[in-house]
Write a protein that binds this DNA or RNA. Structure first.
Lengths: 263, 263
DNA sequence: CGCGACTTTGAGCTATCTCAACAGCAGTGG
DNA sequence: CCACTGCTGTTGAGATAGCTCAAAGTCGCG
């Protein structure tokens, strides 16, 4: 089963439930088929030993959220944690006056809220149709309590997230609009590669507004910057994404190097 | 032993060594006196059980770095990890053209580089004279490999760091200069409180340039913003720090609320 | 007292924002 | 099949928060 970003689907057809907050979702009955999951090699689940898999499969349940729907909200009791298995989700925080900062885009294999804190510190919703594995936090952490090899793997993943956040801090703190957009495209490209999604077109499943709120820019600045990159022949814009024409130069822009420098 | 931010000391008197990179430091011979350490209640060490303490004490060694000296650099092999026990350090990343982004200020009790990655992803140096506990990463992670209660504690601490980083992303992505400075002061105040450092004056041991590089602003903008906060009677500037005059209003500014709002 | 490091203040500049118009496209309904 | 509507993205023109450069002030220290 290949990586699925949920690009094509615009509508959902499966029947859905609503939770106590009115969120629509659909659910796969019975335990998850972890042994067939293409993500097993990639993420925290890879730390599982064969004899642990059967129990683990019963811990999580598969859910589907449709495009634009909400997964959880900042401030709510954090009873569950999530792994994205298909599509893209956005993790964000809001200020009281409506300003939004997207903290990260979660791709297949990414963990959300794998902590033991009582409340969600951010909100998340589905950018495309999204499939997730949902765990009861309490059950999950009980399961791994005597399995340090798994906890260790989780630890590494959180640290990786921390490292990504530091990169993001660097980006927002000292990079220009053009550098931000270039970094964003390259980072996305790397992450797709890592999960085995390789294609000439770099799909941009999120809106310009999402990109703007991620990069700390306005939608107009993002648009103008894309236009500039197109004019300078670094990229071309295609339906649902971009194609990178001049990778080395884009990398230099992302690094903050103005002219062509080869090394 | 109370929290010591190393404010008063401008000079160091103890003899020092130099490591292979030419870094000056001094070292306490023999095992650390963890049983007397005031941080034991606060940080990761609090997860240690009585019978584990003796072994743990032999894992780390106490080092002193003088003001402005370097602890480690981005890109070097990450053989050690650190806990600040006195003073303040800055963790930062550099761009090739010299732009610097300070990722965090590490106060007593804060962990640095508690990961198992091969290389340092950031640099750190001493803002004041700094005491640290230094661990061999390999030895430390070997020690905790069969002690999930400690690993679990570390996990929580890393997640807390992640949460702080997300706050920082929010700050850099969508807050104005005044909001950033207000948030910075309040956040520092909270963190001092947490480690038991309570005083009328909020000490600012870092330079304006450090604050600017942390907040993604220039030194001039930081200075002007302080001046504005003084004029508006939110704070007063005193030697080595500020005093907060109007806490509720400062909190509103930090939240992005313009006028007096009580709730 | 004088030097150097740091901070504040001033004045003009610019990258990015704001506001507004318009273009493209999908869905809808007659 | 085509007007109509709503949503998203692009482009333009003017406004502005924060930046840059320059000068002056402050403070600790020899």
């Amino acid at each position: 089963m290949p990586v699925d970003l949920g690009i094509a689907e615009k509508q959902r057809s499966t029947p859905f439930y609503r939770d106590e907050k009115g969120r629509a979702y659909s659910k796969t009955e019975g335990p998850n088929a972890c042994e067939k999951c293409f993500l097993r090699e990639l993420n925290g689940c890879s730390a599982l030993q064969e004899n642990e898999l059967a129990d683990y499969m019963h811990l999580s349940q598969s859910y589907t959220y449709s495009r634009r729907s909400n997964l959880f909200n900042q401030g709510e009791a954090a009873l569950n944690c999530y792994i994205v298995t298909k599509g893209v989700a956005r993790l964000y925080r809001l200020l009281s006056d409506g300003r939004r900062q997207i903290i990260s885009f979660a791709l297949p294999g990414d963990f959300l809220e794998f902590h033991q804190q009582e409340w969600f510190t951010a909100s998340a919703d589905a950018v495309t149709n999204v499939n997730i594995c949902r765990f009861s936090k309490q059950e999950l952490f009980q399961f791994i309590a005597d399995k340090p090899h798994i906890l260790n793997k989780f630890y590494s993943l959180v640290y990786e997230g921390l490292s990504q956040s530091h990169e993001q801090i660097m980006m927002l703190g000292c990079r220009s609009a053009e550098e931000r957009v270039a970094s964003f495209l390259l980072n996305l490209r790397e992450r797709f590669k890592k999960i085995g999604y390789i294609s000439i077109t770099l799909p941009l499943v999120m809106s310009r507004q999402d990109i703007a709120d991620f990069l700390g820019l306005t939608i107009e600045t993002v648009s103008r910057t894309f236009t500039k990159l197109v004019k300078d022949r670094r990229i071309i814009i295609v339906p649902d994404g971009v194609r990178i024409l001049d990778l080395p130069n884009l990398k230099n822009i992302a690094k903050g190097i103005k002219e062509n420098v080869f090394y």
